[in-house]
Structures are given as structure tokens and as C-alpha cells.
Design a protein around this nucleic acid. Structure first.
Length: 1041
RNA sequence: GCCGUGGUGGCGGAAUUGGUAUACGCGCGGGUCUUAGAAGCCCGUUCCGAAAGGAUUGUGGGUUCGAGUCCCACCCACGGCACCA
């Protein structure tokens, strides 16, 4: 037999696999399925370095073992090829991104091909393939139709170098994650996805992810950043009469500590706060304030963070805020330690119990009032010396004494707080919230750190956003009729606000009080509207029906013989059965029979809004309505319960406004998809905020799908994260001539229980890709986006489970030999091609898995690869010792132990110890003169996932016909694992003094006797009688002297 | 600052979850083969000590017959978040 020659063997078997389609995956099988997935790579121009394949090797090992264990395995690979880096690379190399991407993909594919992976290349996906992004665009449109996509002009993160807006997730320490430039805040027209509507579910469902690493889950929890507290309204008043019309003005603050409201001694608004733009009051130091704002604006995110230690701010003179708890007038400051984009952009400052407020108050000498006694100083435990001082009006000193220089109080007992005095923090919070809600000056509020997803990029290389803008439609004026619900009236809830907003835009609005609102009759109310409407109800009419106003709207639409422009149904009653309580008056208000066909026709464009978290109207009713009316159903988080505040105050509901107006935007028809990215010569970013697509007139100018007038396409493109948010589904989609088919049964086969349900409600067990491997750097980006995207697809019935990835495994990066990151910059990159050429792919695979724990970073060591190769050579050299007549009775124990350990370790991603065990066994086998067929067969099978080429060759040498992946994975015999003789350790006073070899089933007393009989033990006992002898079965004897 | 992860020989790391610490590999030392080198092969290799023996899992305490593993306090490294009210 000749030498181990990896180059020859590897080429031979790679050809064999390709020719025999060994890894072709079928969408149906009697065998259980297993879907194992890598985070697909971004095909950069640099090609792969040895770090990249680490995860792919691991999934390949798992895939191969699963195949051998009789599973139908899906193990695909594809390319995440849209996005900024690809475009920047193309620009730098003066190529078209389509070209460079294609070229890079080929390089990557060739490199991966050297390593012997089990990919079914027929399932390769590429996010830049129009047939692929047809679906990305389709999903975006579905989100748009459901009100999850909106246009915004808020300041966003702008990278001056990449010349595009970025999402919060794309930032790294205030810098562009891609190019490292300092990011600016720039107001920009952009498309935003309301991922915040899913914040609560994204947070709660983390608990379902039992097979995810805990640190990743914690990072997601922190990123979502839920805090519960209250909104509190502070009236704003002028300090002296200004001779202007009395206008009510207020600022709203968010606090997690409503219990400390009595300790509020000033308020702070962010420089961006609208109060400062409001000219209603005479601000005495307006100039100074303006300067401060301008100054703050010029600061970058970086500077604002760096200067965090030293807080700045100035008092707004001429106005005061009124603390609603005690009526006290407190100064208002503008300071940039308050963030404009969190909460309401305004805070109540409680310097005694908030570190930042404390700092600020100290600097500007503001009063500090203690309102919570920390638990550590509770009146009983520490009444001296504090209790004496406590009642005195020496708050500043008091706080200092109580809290030293630290002022965080997470919990305690309220004091100096009127009706809260004596209550513990949680109760005080609750009592304050109830009090605020009763007085209608505040309410409970949950706030998230997660921000909506800035989804547009002013760049070329991305999926075109399939939207069309028609100015004529946008400018059209309508006549709105607002129809209130049961026990309500025209002045309640969002209606007055909505009326104002619409009238601002030049629309006409009728907001009537309907008759008999506490004992309503739907027919009577509909009649009232029809008879009293100041406008004729026709194609220029928009009906907005809220709650029981829904059925009134249905009646109106039934009784007219015209089609109106638009119908907005806000949490409308569909059938008189509710989630919370019965309402007999509503039941009695009509016959609940509706002519849905007619309503559907006459309603025009119909939008239904539902409360995603606390619905009064049953979800299935709104879904039914959606179907009956062909409506767009929006699940939103309203500002107020059931879109109407409890106290009847005037409230904004932005979602209702968005649903009510015609923005002029339309979605591209399904037949027009994919909306292809036009091929252009020049695609450099303009830098003005316009996408390079804007200059391609032929492409931009189009027809309005609604009015057929001239319209323009959206020219921004989607971010890289769009295509990667659902690619794991694309692998599971059957294809016909390159077109992806959404076959729910097949998708559910792969990402569900393996059984195909006919509807989401039939879904069984947990869903998701069985096993997903990738880097932890995606914790708060890809993995949040993909979870959101999947939940959306679940909501619209496209998938049957609401989490995409069942088990997640992180991998640790491979560092260069110098311990730094592998990078061109350090000139320390190692190319896998070189390693394969020198040592073979199998040696590289074994080495990378043997380096250390899979999820920990580890530096490359070339000598280690030599060691891996040596090990494979040792295996190879074992085969000439094969004696088919030889049976290895004596050494069979270690074989079964190895089968057990390797099987378990692969399942647990402990490849290093699996290989170690194989090495131990091989070392044992080398000590024998002969090896049995059984030993070599099992060794080949166990090693096959790690070193597939070598093992195919060895398998052939054992006269086996089919590929080794078609062989059965070995099973161990538990009876054979138990050695006949075991070594017991003997400790005297906790120190090891001797070891003895005994039969494995030695009895308790025998073990103790044998231990005590040991000469060494006797020596250490020095004649003393043992006080205590402990026998731990199969392990040791511990003697206490 | 907050959250998370980790700290074991010269190096990468193992340790059945409270039971012989340092498996396996690398490196190093010695030997063997060879004209020589490379590659093999054999032996050794936590530290101190000639040995007997002693010490040792970031540091200091504790629980236990017994602690790398559990508890308390602290130190260091890495990762995430960072004025989030």
C-alpha cells in the first residue's frame, strides 16, 4: 500500500460526489428531515480566508453524521450579495457591482469546492437574482399593505462616506459599521419599517428559544430594551403675563419612576424638542437657547457621547413647568443629556434619585429633594441619625447624608410625597399611575429602546423599493366623515386631533355627534349620517368608522349606490362578541347581517386597524373582515386602549392618520415583479440623498396604478438585511425554470415539524431551521431582523411557526497566528487554498475542528495543521494491519466508548474532544499488531464527517461499494463500555496516596477493606484508626484519619 | 458605568458536572534510523526537589471527607450596550 496522498484522493472523491449527485436533497422522504444552515457569506473581493469555513465545516460534519444516522438532510449554501460593501468594492475596482459580485461568487464557490462540503448546489440562492428578490419585494409590499412601512423625514444616521442613511443597527460606536466614518444626524426622506410594533413579541418569544445561547438572547433583550413607566403631562406657563391669548401648552415626559414625581425639581427637554420651535411664548433668552440648540446639532453622536461626563444645558427663561403632583412651578432646561429620540424627548428631573439629574443639579445648583428612603436606610433599621433630620426642610443636605455621593435608589419607601408616603416603590409607582390616569394628566406607558428600521438606502446596489408616487393623488382633497362608537362622541379620542390634522392638509372634515350614543341603533345612526352630511357621499368621500362606528359605516356603504374613495375601520365591531366583556346595548344595536359584497365594492380602498396587543375586538373577526372586504389589515400598537383614551382626552393616533390619507404612494402590481434594478453605467452615490437611480428617467417615470396619471418610482433601494431576512426559506422553495415557488407544504416540511400541515393552525410543535450556525456579531442585526420578518410571514399565513431558527450555535473566530484579526491590513491572512495544497482539505477540516472549543476564538497555528495531517497518516497506516480473521476482544471497550463519545460530542458541537477521543483510540490501535475489520470499519465511519475524502478512500479499501455517507452510523453497545477492572483512587485526609485495581462491581465493604490494606495507606495512617471511610462507587475511597 | 463570557503547563486546550487536575495535540529535551537533513519511530516533559516528598487551576476567604467545579469578596482579559430617564 502506498502513502496517504490527499491531493489525489480529494480530487477523486469530489468528482465522484458531483457525478453521482450524492448530496442531491429531496423534498420528501420517509426518513426524518434535518435542516442545518450556515449564515450565508457576503462574497467580498478578498475571497475566503481560513476563518470563514470554520462554521461550514462544523455544519458539514453535523450534516454528514445526520445523513449517516438516516436523516433527509438539507444543507444549502448561497450568497448575500447586495449591499454597500459590494458596491464600494465595485466602485474601487471600477467594475459594475453585478460583474464584481458574479466574479466574487465564482471565487468563493471554487474555494468552498475544495473542502468537500455536502451542499446541494441546485439549491444555491443569490439575493441579487431578480427571481430571488421578486419575493423580497413581494414581502415588502405585503408589509406596506399592512401599514408596517411608512415614510418619514426624521433625522437619521447618515454616513458621509457611504453617502447613505443607516439603521441604528448599522452603527458601531457612533461610526458607520462598514467604513468607520463618523455618522451624522441628517433629516432625510426615508422608508421606515415599524419593527417596534413587534417589539413585545420579539421580546417575549425569546423565552421560546430554548436552544439559543443565553448571551445572544440577553443581547437581544437589551437591544429591545423594554422599560415600563408613565407619561406625565406638565403644563407650561409664562412667568409673567405676556399679553397674548391664553393658550394651553404642555410638555409630556416619560419616566420609569412615577413614584418620584414629588421629587421633581426641574424639567429638561432635548434640543430637538418641539417646545423650542413653538413660538407661543416669549422666551427671554431665545438667542442663547438657539445658540445652544445649534451647538448641540453640530455635535456628532461621537462628541455627544464623549462629552457625556460634563453635562451642559441652559434654562429656558420666561416659562415654567407645573409639577402636576404638587402644583409647584419648576424651571425648564434644554440640555443634550436628554435624547430627542427616546421617550418623549423630555424628562422630569429628580436629582435625588437619578445620577444624571444629580450631576446636572449639582453643576447648576438646583434643588435636590429626597422622596425615597433607600431600603438600606429604612426607618426601622436606620432611624438614627437620619430620622431626626428627615422631616426638616434640608433636602439637599438630607440627600447627601442619605445617599452619600451616590444617588441611585432602585427601591425604598416613599417620603415627602403626600399620598405616596410610606408606600414601597412598586406600590407607589402603581398608585401614582392610577392617580395620574384618574386626573387625566398621565398614563402608563411602555417604552422600548428598539427603534423603527430605517429601510431605505440612497445607493444603487440593492433591491428597488417597489413603490410609485403620484403627485396628483397625493394632492387630491377629500371629504372626511368621522363616525364615533358606542358611548362616545365627537370630542373623544383621536377624532378632534384627526380633524385638525386633515384640515391642515386642506381636506374637509365632518365630525358629528351621533344620536343615542349610550343606547345606539346602528340603522338610526347611519340614517343620521346620510341625512345630515354636509357633503354628498361620493367618490371624494372618506369614511372613518371607529368601534361601533364600524357597523354604522357598513350600513352607510350598503345604502349608497356609489363607490367612495376610502374607508378606514378603526378597531371596528364585526360581530357583537368581544374579548373583554359583553355589551348588551351593542348586541341590540342592529341585526348584524351585512351585505359584504356591496360594502366591499362601495368602500373603495378599505383599511382595517386592529390593536395587536390588547384587542377588544377578536382577532379572528378582523381577519374575517379583511377577507370579506379585501381590506388591508393593519395590526398596530395604538397610543390608547382601543384607540380611545380612558379619560376622553384629545389624543393623537398616527396610525389612523396614515390610514386615512392618500399619500400618493402605490405599490407595484404583483405582475410587475420582480421590479428589476436597471442596468446602468454610472451608479456612484450622488451624496445629495437622492439615489443614483433618480437620474434614470426612463426607469423613474411611470404610470400611477390608481389614476393612470404620470408618476415616479421610488429610487431608494433596500438595505442588505432585506434579502438575508428570509433566505433560509428560499432554500426550501421548489424552483421551476429559476422561479421560486412558495409551496407551503414543502416549506413546512423543512422548517416545521417535518409534517406538512394544511394551515397555520395545524402546525405542530416548534418550528424553525433545526440548526443554525453563525457568528455572534449578528445578534442584534440579522437575527432580530430575521425573527421580525418571520413573524410577519407567520402573521400573514405564509409560514406555520413564528420563530425562524430552533437551535442557534455561535462560532468563535479564527485569529491570525499573531493573535490579531485576519486582515489584509495586517498582512496576516491565510488562504485555505494554500492549506489544502500543502496538507489536504481533510487535514484542514480536522485541524479547524480540533483547535479548541467551537464557540471560542482561537489563533491559527500552522504546526497544528501538521499534527492533524500526522493523525490522518496514522489512520492510513493502520490499514495494512487489517486481518479479517482477527477479532479484537480485548480492545473492544475503547471502540464502544469512542462511538459513544464521538456521537455525543458532534451533537453538542464539541468537535475538539471528539477528535481527541479518536486520536486516543488510534493510538491504542497502533499499539496492537493486528486490527480487526470491525475496528477499521467503525473508525472509518466515525472519522468520515471530519475527513470525508480520506474516509471514502478507506471505505473503498474495505471493499464497500456505495459512498460512506450512505452507510449507517455506528451504534455502541452500553454493555461493552463497562471495563471489567477499574482503578480506584485512595485518599487519606483528602490527598491522593495510592491507587488500586479492582473488579468494577466490587462491593462497598470490599473496596474499603482493600483500600485500608494498602501499604501506602497504612504508612500515612501512622497507626491511627480511620475516623471515617467513604467509598464513592467506581471512583475512590476517601479515608479520614 | 451596566450586562454577558472567560481566567488551568512554554502554547491550543481536557476534566464523566463535587471524586486520581494537566487527557489529546503543538512545542521542547533525549534516543533510534540516516553520509547528512527532512519525515518516521521510541522515551521524557505542570513547577520545586537528587530523592522522599511538597506545591499548583487569576487573588483572598468559606462550605465539604474531598473544590478547577459550589458560596462570598476582589483582580484581570475579551465581547455587547452605553446620558435609554
Amino acid at each position: 500500500m502506498n502513502q496517504y496522498h490527499p491531493a489525489k484522493i480529494e480530487k477523486k472523491w469530489q468528482k465522484y460526489w458531483e457525478k453521482n449527485k450524492t448530496f442531491k436533497t429531496s423534498d420528501s422522504s420517509d426518513r426524518p428531515k434535518f435542516y442545518v444552515l450556515d449564515m450565508f457569506p457576503y462574497p467580498s473581493g478578498a475571497g475566503l480566508h481560513v476563518g470563514h469555513p470554520k462554521g461550514y465545516i462544523a455544519t458539514d460534519i453535523v450534516a454528514r453524521m445526520k445523513m449517516m444516522q438516516g436523516h433527509n438532510v438539507l444543507h444549502p449554501m448561497g450568497w448575500d450579495a447586495f449591499g454597500l460593501p459590494a458596491e464600494n468594492y465595485a466602485l474601487k475596482n471600477k467594475m459594475h457591482p453585478a460583474e464584481s459580485t458574479e466574479k466574487n461568487v465564482q471565487v468563493f464557490k471554487k474555494q468552498l469546492g475544495l473542502l468537500g462540503f455536502t451542499y446541494d448546489w441546485d439549491r444555491e440562492v443569490n439575493t441579487t437574482d431578480p427571481e430571488y428578490y421578486r419575493w423580497t419585494q413581494w414581502m415588502f409590499i405585503e408589509m406596506y399593505k399592512r401599514g408596517l412601512v411608512f415614510e418619514s423625514n426624521e433625522p437619521i444616521n447618515w454616513c458621509p462616506s457611504c453617502k447613505t442613511g443607516l439603521a441604528n443597527e448599522d452603527l458601531d460606536d457612533g461610526k458607520c459599521e462598514r467604513c468607520g466614518s463618523i455618522v451624522e444626524q441628517k433629516p432625510m426622506r426615508q422608508w421606515v419599517i415599524k419593527i417596534t410594533d413587534y417589539a413585545e413579541r420579539l421580546l417575549n418569544d425569546i423565552d421560546k428559544l430554548t436552544e439559543w445561547p443565553e448571551p445572544i438572547k440577553e443581547m437581544q433583550r437589551n437591544w429591545i430594551g423594554k422599560s415600563e413607566g408613565a407619561l406625565v403631562k406638565f403644563a407650561v406657563i409664562p412667568t409673567e403675563a405676556q399679553g397674548r391669548a391664553e393658550e394651553s401648552l404642555s410638555i409630556e415626559v416619560f419616566t420609569t419612576r412615577p413614584d418620584t414625581l414629588f421629587g421633581c425639581t426641574y424639567c429638561v427637554v432635548a434640543p430637538e424638542h418641539e417646545l423650542l420651535r413653538n413660538q407661543k411664548f416669549n422666551i427671554k433668552n431665545q438667542k442663547e437657547v438657539n445658540e445652544y440648540i445649534a451647538n448641540a446639532k453640530n455635535k456628532t453622536v461621537m462628541e455627544r457621547t464623549e462629552l457625556a461626563k460634563e453635562k451642559t444645558g441652559i434654562e429656558i427663561q420666561g416659562i415654567k413647568a407645573v409639577n402636576p403632583a404638587n402644583g409647584e412651578q419648576v424651571p425648564i432646561f434644554v440640555a443634550d443629556y436628554v435624547l430627542g429620540n427616546y421617550g418623549t424627548g423630555a424628562i422630569m428631573a429628580v436629582p435625588a434619585h437619578d445620577e444624571r439629574d444629580w450631576e446636572f443639579a449639582k453643576k447648576y445648583d438646583l434643588p435636590i429633594r429626597c422622596v425615597v428612603i433607600p431600603d438600606a436606610y429604612s426607618v426601622e433599621s436606620a432611624s438614627k441619625p437620619f430620622s431626626d433630620n428627615f422631616q426638616k426642610d434640608q433636602d439637599v443636605e438630607m440627600t447627601k447624608i442619605l445617599l452619600g455621593e451616590k444617588c441611585n435608589v432602585s427601591g425604598g419607601i416613599s417620603t415627602n410625597s403626600d399620598f405616596l408616603n410610606g408606600l414601597k416603590t412598586p406600590e407607589a409607582k402603581q398608585k401614582m399611575i392610577t392617580w395620574l390616569e384618574e386626573k387625566n394628566i398621565g398614563k402608563k406607558k411602555t417604552q422600548y429602546k428598539l427603534r423603527d428600521w430605517v429601510f431605505s438606502r440612497q445607493r444603487y446596489w440593492g433591491e428597488p423599493i417597489p413603490l410609485v408616487k403620484c403627485e396628483a393623488c397625493a394632492n387630491k382633497k377629500f371629504n372626511y366623515i368621522l363616525i364615533h362608537g358606542f358611548t362616545s362622541n365627537s370630542s373623544r379620542g383621536f377624532k378632534p386631533w384627526l380633524k385638525t390634522e386633515l384640515e391642515k392638509d386642506g381636506h374637509r372634515v365632518w365630525n358629528p355627534d351621533l344620536p343615542n350614543t349610550t343606547n345606539p341603533n346602528v340603522n338610526e345612526q347611519a340614517k343620521y349620517v346620510l341625512e345630515n352630511s354636509p357633503f354628498s357621499i361620493d367618490e371624494d368621500t372618506v369614511l372613518v368608522g371607529h368601534s361601533l362606528g364600524g357597523p354604522v359605516t357598513y350600513r352607510i356603504l350598503e345604502s349608497i349606490n356609489k363607490k367612495i374613495a376610502r374607508t378606514v375601520l378603526v378597531d371596528p365591531v364585526v360581530r357583537p362578541r368581544f374579548n373583554d366583556q359583553d355589551r348588551p346595548e351593542v348586541v341590540a344595536s342592529c341585526d348584524w347581517q351585512f351585505d359584504w359584497k356591496k360594502i366591499k365594492i362601495n368602500g373603495g380602498k378599505i383599511v382595517v386597524l386592529g390593536d395587536i396587543h390588547r384587542p377588544i375586538i377578536k382577532k379572528e373577526h378582523l381577519v374575517e373582515l379583511e377577507k370579506n372586504l379585501g381590506a388591508d389589515l393593519w395590526w398596530v400598537i395604538p397610543q390608547n386602549y382601543h384607540f380611545s383614551s380612558r379619560g376622553g382626552a384629545v389624543e393623537s393616533e398616527p396610525a389612523v392618520l396614515r390610514a386615512s390619507i392618500d399619500s400618493g404612494w402605490s405599490v407595484v402590481d404583483d405582475e410587475e415583479l420582480p421590479l428589476e434594478l436597471p442596468k446602468v453605467k454610472h451608479y456612484e452615490p450622488s451624496g445629495t440623498g437622492e439615489s443614483p437611480l433618480a437620474t434614470i428617467e426612463k426607469w423613474v417615470n411611470t404610470k400611477c396604478p390608481k389614476c393612470s396619471g404620470p408618476a415616479k418610482r421610488e429610487t431608494n433601494t433596500m438595505p442588505q438585511w432585506a434579502g438575508s431576512s428570509w433566505y433560509y426559506l428560499a432554500y426550501a422553495m421548489p424552483r421551476v425554470k429559476g422561479k421560486y415557488i412558495w409551496d407551503k407544504k414543502v416549506i413546512e416540511y423543512w422548517i416545521g415539524s417535518g409534517l406538512a400541515p394544511r394551515s397555520p393552525s395545524e402546525a405542530q410543535g416548534e418550528g424553525g431551521v433545526d440548526f443554525y450556525v453563525g457568528g455572534a456579531e449578528h445578534a442584534t442585526r440579522h437575527l432580530i431582523y430575521a425573527r421580525f420578518w418571520h413573524k410577519f410571514l407567520f402573521d400573514i399565513g405564509m409560514v406555520a411557526h413564528d420563530e425562524p431558527f430552533k437551535r442557534l450555535q455561535n462560532l468563535g473566530v479564527i485569529l491570525a497566528e499573531d493573535g490579531r484579526k485576519m486582515s489584509k491590513r495586517w498582512n496576516n491572512v491565510i488562504n485555505p487554498n494554500d492549506i489544502v495544497a500543502r496538507f489536504g482539505a481533510d487535514a484542514m477540516r480536522v485541524y479547524e475542528m480540533f483547535m479548541g472549543p467551537f464557540d471560542q476564538p482561537c489563533a491559527w497555528n500552522m504546526q497544528g495543521v501538521v499534527g492533524a495531517k500526522r493523525f490522518l497518516e496514522k489512520v492510513w497506516d493502520l490499514f495494512p494491519r487489517l486481518d479479517k480473521n482477527f477479532t479484537a476482544d480485548a480492545s473492544v471497550g475503547i471502540m464502544h466508548k469512542t462511538i459513544k463519545k464521538v456521537t455525543e460530542d458532534i451533537s453538542e458541537m464539541k468537535f475538539n474532544t471528539a477528535i481527541s477521543q479518536l486520536m486516543i483510540w488510534v493510538n491504542e490501535l497502533r499499539a496492537q499488531e493486528k486490527t480487526s475489520f470491525d475496528e477499521l470499519k467503525n473508525l472509518t465511519l466515525l472519522l468520515a464527517p471530519f475527513a470525508p475524502h480520506l474516509c471514502e478512500e478507506l471505505w473503498e479499501m474495505l471493499d464497500q461499494k456505495s459512498s460512506v455517507v450512505n452507510a449507517d452510523w455506528p451504534k455502541y453497545n452500553p454493555a461493552k463500555i463497562q471495563d471489567n477492572e477499574i482503578t480506584l483512587a485512595i485518599q487519606v485526609n483528602g490527598k491522593l496516596r495510592d491507587t488500586i485495581v479492582v473488579p468494577f462491581d466490587i462491593s462497598d465493604t470490599d473496596a474499603k477493606d482493600r483500600a485500608l490494606a494498602s501499604e501506602k495507606v497504612q504508612k500515612w495512617l501512622e497507626g491511627r484508626a480511620p475516623k471515617k471511610v467513604i467509598y464513592v462507587k467506581g471512583k475512590l475511597v476517601s479515608i479520614v484519619a
